[in-house]
Design a protein around this nucleic acid. Structure first.
Lengths: 321, 321
DNA sequence: GCGCTACATCGTAAATGGTTACCGTCAAAT
DNA sequence: ATTTGACGGTAACCATTTACGATGTAGCGC
């Protein structure tokens, strides 16, 4: 028994000849190791839990792909749970994942509240936050600097001569895509000495339709902006179509910029100028970090901020050109 | 011990008073049931394996969402494995999933070859194919009728007066999105007495760019088609933009139709006319079927074909209108 | 009131399929 | 002959489930 265990686990302490015999028997009997029994005995399952808001959202799907690729590389499997950013569902899946004895946990979600922390604390396995972070910074995380990304986006608008800049924001309750990006907008305005005007920002829900709606509102203003910054690409694309549906042109009549760089950004006309967030890498780096933690390697910086990059395409113009 | 097991599993054979004491102890000790040990003893893991070509592909992501929702409803978790339609990776993940003692397997992939069948046969748990099916029809599956969907798409073009209809196909090696849809195209042509012309079909790789390329080719033909059928929405959108980039109009100069109905289809101008495939439902129904199989319920029809529906939007016009 | 039966409740121990610490054996080297 | 190291076997252990048996108690007939 022990010998079989050794050959299956590639333990060197077994004579090649015996090893061969074991392999033959395995073949002959159609033996398949039972990972559950192995997990019980070894206290390792080589699976990690991933809680994700919504796998059908292309951003998270891309992150998930990064996670899975790296997990696979290190011979982990992942258990995927959608939680829709609903707190009580998040807590629930965290607990079932922990019951399943995952070797580590990757958490993606909007906000991490005190209740989340409480759930995390009952865990004996490492946890890393992906595309979020906790207030206190107590947990390892990987994310981008949303505020800086938004700042850069608005700033490129400003550098193109725009001063009447509207924003289609997410809800301010959302710390990353909402609050932080909105604050980046405000700061960029402030840094350029432009006064913040409340009626130049609308709150959307990140979806295409809400971008269309918000833009309709701006189009109806007596004093129209010359450019709009959308918190996400999808809303930006909605805004572009809203503009075009009125017979106006992007970027001639309005410049549009946003943050994300989803694939669709290069599948619209005009090609969307946006600040890219490295989605695949967010997942990949988070998973890599988790593997280190699971191996109890010491990691220098457990809170990593990945760089963003503004991608100049065709939806932004110099004003009066 | 047995009593604790009983209360944790809601077995009625335990005095309410004892039950309460157990709950108290659980609370006090912070006890969390170990699902791995439970799995070993009960031979059930309440997790199912899902092999998927690519989770970052929006179609599969949507299917996956359907799978996960239903799985969750029946208290299963899912282990997600990307296999990129690469046979040897598919076989590999099937085996590791089986080692992990999943209670069932959901397989999505391009082709199911004899080697797949061989791997399936070693399984003691039910397997259902989703968005594919095997030649012999030996395994439960849920899919749409790709050929009929393509037929309907081409037929609506024909009913709009078009007779010079190009196709942007997928590779003919791919049984569903490739071969079947191509054959639907041919049959629709044939049924309308239109001669099939080889230089009116181009093979793409399902991606936007290949749609752009293929359309460029058609645009360069001396005798241009008046309409194009793309095997997938993404290629259709590429085609639309290719047309627009030449200063031509959809649908005035060219009609465009395809199959899929991804979200992006209603996020382009003009809104894409397409034959909708119920992606979420494909996943949901497949998972529901699997739950029945896992419970050893007898199922009337293990090979389900979900209906498709052609969605008339704005990318198709009557010819000479 | 007694004895018996039946049932509810609970505990015991085997089983699940591995890993691994520990020990014994054997052959080669010193 | 003794030491050493490679190799293989034994058995404890992992945290549950579950078959089975033990215990206690209530109901019933007499």
């Amino acid at each position: 028994m022990a010998t079989v265990s050794r050959v299956v686990n590639n333990n060197p302490n077994v004579k090649p000849q015996t090893r061969k015999k074991v392999y033959e028997a395995i073949e002959r009997l159609g033996y398949r190791p039972n990972a559950v029994a192995r997990g019980l005995a070894s206290k390792k399952t080589t699976t990690v839990g991933v809680v994700i808001p919504d796998i059908s959202n292309s951003i998270f799907a891309e992150i998930a792909r990064g996670i899975e690729d790296i997990a696979n590389m290190y011979h982990y499997n992942i258990i995927l749970c959608n939680a829709d950013k609903r707190k009580e569902k998040e807590i629930r899946v965290i607990n079932t994942l922990l019951e399943k004895q995952v070797d580590g946990l990757l958490f993606m979600g909007g906000t991490v509240t005190d209740e989340h922390i409480l759930a995390f604390q009952t865990s004996s396995v490492p946890i890393v936050l992906c595309a979020t972070s906790d207030e206190k910074g107590a947990y390892p995380s990987v994310d981008i600097d949303h505020e800086a990304a938004a700042f850069d986006a608005v700033n490129t608008l400003i550098r193109h001569g725009h001063r009447e800049i509207a924003m289609i924001s997410g809800t301010l309750q959302d710390p990353a895509n909402g609050y932080a990006r909105f604050h980046g907008y405000k700061k960029a305005l402030e840094a350029a000495g432009i006064e913040y005007q409340e009626d130049l920002v609308r709150i959307g829900n990140y979806r295409y339709e809400s971008g269309v709606e918000a833009m309709k509102y701006f189009l109806g203003l007596k004093k129209k902006p010359t450019a709009v910054f959308a918190a996400t690409d999808e809303m930006a694309i909605g805004a572009i179509h809203s503009i075009q549906d009125e017979g106006l042109k992007v970027p001639d009549d309005f410049s549009v910029i946003s943050v994300d760089n989803i694939r669709m950004a290069s599948m619209v006309r005009p090609l969307l100028t946006t600040v890219a967030q490295p989605m695949y890498d967010l997942g990949a780096v988070a998973m890599r970090l988790l593997t280190k933690l699971m191996k109890k390697e010491t990691v220098e910086n457990p809170r990593v901020i990945l760089p963003h990059e503004t991608i100049l395409r065709l939806s932004v113009n110099h004003l009066n050109e």
